[in-house]
Design a protein around this nucleic acid. Structure first.
Length: 342
DNA sequence: TCTGGGGTCCTAGGACCC
DNA sequence: TCTGGGGTCCTAGGACCC
């Protein structure tokens, strides 16, 4: 199977409509104002030369490269570009497409020559959208996904059973898809530092640390094992949420009340579009220093009523009994499952 | 004046039931 | 002088990804 990942997607889409910025460090994030509280969504390759990475606060990015061009995130434009990319992949004969996000997808396809197929897909996407992508090829989804990183930019890479240990064996466990810094640290506390060490770890030890499902899952991951068919059944969302980091911390109950009601109103717009009522309300709060917490409450009856959702969220907030200034609020509506479940 | 916004999935542990 | 064991539901919280 193949894993297709667009190169510097947001920045590349912006460059299509602002060709004069080509070759310059471009940073897409927030409202495009590096003095605001917001982070980098995508940095162009030129911007990455300065050490700018996605997830980095815009303020820090501006410090690293004061001459960078900062652009606001423009969702509808990326949405449209993404749809065009996915349609192009689906148009390839025999291709089964599983979308992972705006800018990436697995493509399952029967082919004698996967590298040639990858090159063909790259050419088709470029012709249709003027955008470049990298493609990883693997015998499992995990391997295809990881392979893409070695193909960037604009290239391809093959990662299979045959070269897995050679390519990945000595890399840290955090090079794996699904192992972040926390899991990496917990593995290290078991004496497991590399992918090869994870692959040969004692499964009981992993079960002891991570539980009966996740433990064996991680060992399989270390071996590059996992799903090896692409599933194109359409995604059914479980929940919709809205959250906002306030440029100025919320201090008064009135401000908090208004903010929660606004978030609930926007969440209801989303779930109405989905046609499935809110069954559980999630509240997320970040207080001033840097303490984030979430609370959940199941509703007696599923509802589309924004005030009901807001009241529940405010009740959860009141139960925290914490009157520090609030930096972030999030309201999420977990929806009633569709007929027949997920 | 450090740390977005959209998601998903997993685990632990308490309550409750039979 | 005992209080098992299996199952479900619920909430809190952690972790990861794009």
């Amino acid at each position: 199977m193949l894993h297709v990942d667009m190169d510097q997607f947001l920045a590349a889409v912006e460059l299509l409509r602002r060709p004069e910025l080509r070759g310059k460090p471009v940073v897409v994030g927030g409202r495009g104002d590096p003095t605001e509280r917001a982070v980098v969504s995508t940095a162009s390759y030129e911007a990455r030369e300065f050490g700018i990475r996605s997830g980095m606060p815009l303020r820090i990015a501006a410090r690293k490269c004061p001459d960078a061009v900062f652009l606001p995130v423009d969702f509808p434009v990326y949405e449209a570009a993404s749809a065009q990319v996915m349609a192009t992949l689906r148009a390839h004969p025999g291709a089964v497409v599983e979308v992972l996000g705006w800018d990436e997808a697995f493509v399952g396809i029967e082919t004698e020559d996967p590298v040639a197929t990858a090159h063909a897909l790259q050419a088709e996407v470029l012709a249709a959208t003027d955008l470049h992508c990298s493609i990883g090829i693997g015998d499992t989804l995990v391997r295809a996904k990881i392979a893409t990183e070695f193909g960037k930019p604009q290239g391809t890479f093959v990662l299979t059973e045959d070269n897995w240990v050679e390519v990945m064996g000595e890399r840290p466990t955090t090079a794996l898809w699904g192992v972040g810094p926390r899991i990496g640290a917990r593995l290290e506390s078991l004496g497991i530092r590399t992918v090869a060490e994870l692959a040969s770890a004692a499964v009981d030890e992993l079960v002891g640390e991570f539980g009966p499902n996740t433990g064996p899952y991680f060992r399989d991951l270390g071996r590059g094992h996992g799903r090896h068919h692409v599933d194109d059944t359409p995604w059914v969302p479980r929940a919709h949420g809205r959250e906002t980091t306030y440029q100025r911390d919320l201090e008064t109950p009135e401000e908090v009340d208004a903010a929660v009601r606004e978030l609930a109103r926007r969440v209801v717009e989303d779930i109405e579009r989905e046609g499935r009522a809110c069954a559980r309300v999630h509240l997320k709060v970040r207080f001033k220093p840097f303490f984030t917490t979430t609370r959940i409450r199941k509703l007696a009856e599923p509802t589309y009523d924004a005030d009901m959702i807001a009241d529940t969220a405010l009740d959860l907030l009141a139960a925290l009994d914490d009157d520090r200034p609030i930096r972030l609020l999030g309201v999420r509506a977990e929806m009633v499952p569709p007929e027949g479940g997920y």
